[in-house]
């Protein structure tokens, strides 16, 4: 099987999502990113590599260091970005409907 490299693969992993959240707050080098995690530097470096290959991170060379930025253009590709958020709330609200019906019946 050919290894898939797309935005969905990138965000399917919790550590990679955490890296994205971290970088959303500001660009950082690989070392600084790794310092925020308990996992080994190599593991984090692998995650950064996958995120970069998936086009979610943009590299900026600053002297000998590489600074990673969120590639906001490709983040938008996470189609209808609000959709999973909406699904969460809809699922919760549907449950609330059921609870409200039960409460009304027990009055």
């Amino acid at each position: 099987m050919e290894i898939r490299r797309d935005v969905f693969q990138a965000i399917a992993d919790p550590t990679r999502r955490s890296i994205l959240v971290l970088l959303a707050a500001g660009a950082m080098g690989a070392g600084a990113i790794a310092n925020q995690f308990i996992s080994s530097r190599q593991t984090i470096s692998k995650h950064i590599q996958i995120l970069t290959e998936c086009g979610l991170l943009r590299q900026e060379h600053k002297g000998r260091e590489i600074i990673y930025h969120i590639n906001s253009k490709n983040m938008k590709q996470i189609a209808d970005f609000i959709e999973p958020f909406r699904q969460l709330w809809e699922a919760r609200f549907d449950k609330m409907d059921t609870i409200l019906d039960n409460l009304k019946n027990t009055k």
Partner: peptide, 10 residues
């Protein structure tokens, strides 16, 4: 970030 991927729970 929260809307996109921060709310890991769901």
């Amino acid at each position: 970030a929260m809307v996109q991927h921060g709310m890991q729970q769901q």
